[in-house]
Amino acid sequence: MIKWTVAGLMLISLTSCGMVGGPVSGVVVDAETRQPIEGAYVVAQWSGSSSVSIAESQTVCIYTDMAKTDEKGRFRIPMWFFQKPGITGQRQNVEIYKPGYLPETGSRSDEYGISTSQSSINERVDYMMAVRGRATCRGNEEPEKNLLALINALYEESKALAGVEYDSNIVEPFLYSKEELIFGYTRAQELRKKRWSSQ
């Protein structure tokens, strides 16, 4: 009995603690000239390990937020704090996005280099889809409306890449994401189904 009580106490203590993350700040620069870049989107995602399952564990998104660089290339994503039960561990992932640019690879510090993208359209869309994936906090029922500016920028670039207002392959994923942020999952699905059925 004592054993079980101890176990229960430990479980409670592990699963009810508050979560805190950030702030994240830094500067986005041109990868070659190291000059600051204005108007780049910086999205940070914090993930942790869910211990809701006692058999296995899952990586879950804890929180995601976005900032835009100022004229000196600076950005700051503020600290956050809230109760999120059942999560242990924490990992922070920062992604930089600016239309027409790609981030440099390598270890990150507080200076993030980006350079003009030389990718093909397919490669570019693939990268943009990855950015969209980072800007998604899986399992959150509430849309991450703080990311609307980023999703909108992705949507605008997708239209430019497609060369048309709507394209079922290139534009559709970003239009859907935008609508999901604005209208929610159910309504966005309805709108998308209408587009699919009209093709």
């Binding site: 054993k3 079980w4 430990m10 479980l11 390990s49 006692i54 058999a55 296995e56 564990s57 561990g89």
Partner: peptide, 16 residues
């Protein structure tokens, strides 16, 4: 088991 809970816990196990 590999939930990441202490091994002494029922069904616990270290993290995978």
């Amino acid at each position: 088991p590999h939930a990441g809970l202490p091994a002494s816990l029922v069904g616990g196990g270290h993290k995978s």
